[in-house]
Simulated scan of single mutants.
Amino acid sequence: MGTSLDAATSAGQLSAELLGAMAYGELSAFGRLSLDSREAPTLHDRSVLAKIAVGAYGNFALLSDRLWEIGVDPEHAMLPFQRSFDHFHERTKPGDWFESVMKAYVIDTVSSDFYRAVSMFLDSTTQHFVERVASPDQATEVLRVLLNRALADDPRLASRLALWGRRLVGEALTQAQRVGVEHPVLGPALKNTPDARAAVKTLTAELAAKHARRMTGLGLTA
């Protein structure tokens, strides 16, 4: 009885931590993309990034509602992640529009992979919810198209964006490791083992491999 209760408590904590991390990530994305849209070279591109920002806020609202449903104050769930997420974005400020689009693409895809990997150890309802929010969607494809177009228009961007992409994914994977280790409910759950550091190391290797395939698809080296 006690073991079942402990397991249920742990699962509930994992759900709250994961949803809290996702919620703050989406709220941050909304603010970041709204600002980045102002640097767009055309009004069309500006409207495209603004629309993606609105989608991020929509995801934030969905996550907040879900947290209330499971009895967790969204602000309390997000606060433990605020400092590290904000520091990450301070360290990875884009230099121009093209770097902004690359950052949005890399962060969107890598974080989605991370959240879905963690959700596999949750109850089916939460797992399906995370899959719905974190799965690649139209925004991901739009960002990929923007990058492909930019690279086709100016092939000289390839080396710079490849280098920027490598820096971003390095920072993103370090962030994923930090989240897994600093939030002990998340780390061990990844591989159902008490060794959080080993679990997170394995996951980050998987995330890096997926990122490399996406960069190859763009004609860039990861």
Score class of each variant (00 low, 15 high):
residue 75 E to C: 01
residue 195 D to A: 08
residue 175 Q to C: 03
residue 20 G to P: 14
residue 91 R to W: 01
residue 30 F to E: 06
residue 160 R to L: 07
residue 74 P to K: 14
residue 12 G to H: 13
residue 126 T to Q: 10
residue 10 S to N: 13
residue 42 T to N: 02
residue 208 A to P: 01
residue 26 E to G: 07
residue 12 G to P: 02
residue 59 N to A: 13
residue 95 G to T: 01
residue 170 G to S: 09
residue 69 E to F: 11
residue 60 F to G: 07
residue 94 P to D: 13
residue 88 F to D: 06
residue 192 N to G: 09
residue 204 T to E: 06
residue 139 A to Y: 09
residue 108 D to N: 07
residue 111 S to D: 04
residue 42 T to S: 10
residue 69 E to H: 15
residue 137 D to N: 14
residue 99 E to I: 01
residue 120 M to I: 08
residue 68 W to L: 06
residue 99 E to G: 05
residue 181 V to R: 00
residue 41 P to H: 03
residue 49 L to Q: 07
residue 73 D to E: 15
residue 70 I to T: 05
residue 221 T to G: 09
residue 194 P to Y: 00
residue 66 R to D: 01
residue 130 V to Q: 07
residue 192 N to E: 12
residue 210 K to M: 08
residue 15 S to H: 14
residue 127 Q to A: 08
residue 161 L to G: 00
residue 58 G to L: 11
residue 161 L to Q: 01
residue 43 L to P: 00
residue 125 T to M: 06
residue 73 D to T: 02
residue 99 E to L: 03
residue 61 A to I: 10
residue 10 S to M: 11
residue 201 K to L: 06
residue 156 R to M: 07
residue 159 S to D: 09
residue 81 F to S: 00
residue 169 V to T: 13
residue 78 M to K: 06
residue 91 R to E: 12
residue 95 G to N: 08
residue 25 G to Q: 03
residue 181 V to T: 03
residue 104 A to I: 13
residue 215 M to V: 11
residue 99 E to N: 05
residue 220 L to S: 04
residue 15 S to E: 15
residue 159 S to I: 10
residue 101 V to L: 12
residue 79 L to Q: 12
residue 24 Y to K: 04
residue 145 V to F: 09
residue 26 E to I: 01
residue 7 A to H: 12
residue 35 L to R: 15
residue 204 T to M: 05
residue 86 D to E: 08
residue 136 P to V: 05
residue 35 L to V: 10
residue 8 A to R: 11
residue 126 T to S: 12
residue 56 A to T: 08
residue 206 E to V: 14
residue 65 D to N: 10
residue 187 G to Q: 00
residue 141 E to C: 05
residue 173 L to W: 04
residue 92 T to A: 03
residue 47 S to F: 12
residue 153 D to E: 13
residue 2 G to H: 14
residue 72 V to W: 14
residue 187 G to N: 00
residue 88 F to E: 07
residue 170 G to T: 05
residue 40 A to K: 03
residue 53 A to P: 04
residue 37 S to T: 06
residue 8 A to I: 12
residue 109 T to W: 10
residue 151 L to Q: 04
residue 178 R to N: 09
residue 206 E to F: 05
residue 92 T to F: 00
residue 145 V to C: 08
residue 218 L to V: 07
residue 34 S to E: 06
residue 192 N to C: 02
residue 184 P to V: 11
residue 219 G to P: 06
residue 65 D to S: 14
residue 121 F to I: 04
residue 144 R to Q: 15
residue 195 D to S: 09
residue 4 S to I: 15
residue 168 L to Q: 04
residue 112 S to N: 12
residue 111 S to I: 12
residue 55 G to T: 09
residue 68 W to G: 06
residue 88 F to I: 02
residue 18 L to P: 02
residue 117 A to Q: 04
residue 219 G to L: 10
residue 151 L to A: 08
residue 16 A to W: 01
residue 206 E to T: 11
residue 52 I to P: 02
residue 190 L to C: 08
residue 110 V to N: 00
residue 218 L to M: 11
residue 152 A to N: 09
residue 72 V to C: 02
residue 110 V to Q: 00
residue 91 R to Q: 14
residue 33 L to F: 10
residue 58 G to F: 05
residue 176 A to F: 13
residue 2 G to Y: 14
residue 80 P to C: 04
residue 70 I to L: 13
residue 112 S to M: 07
residue 61 A to V: 06
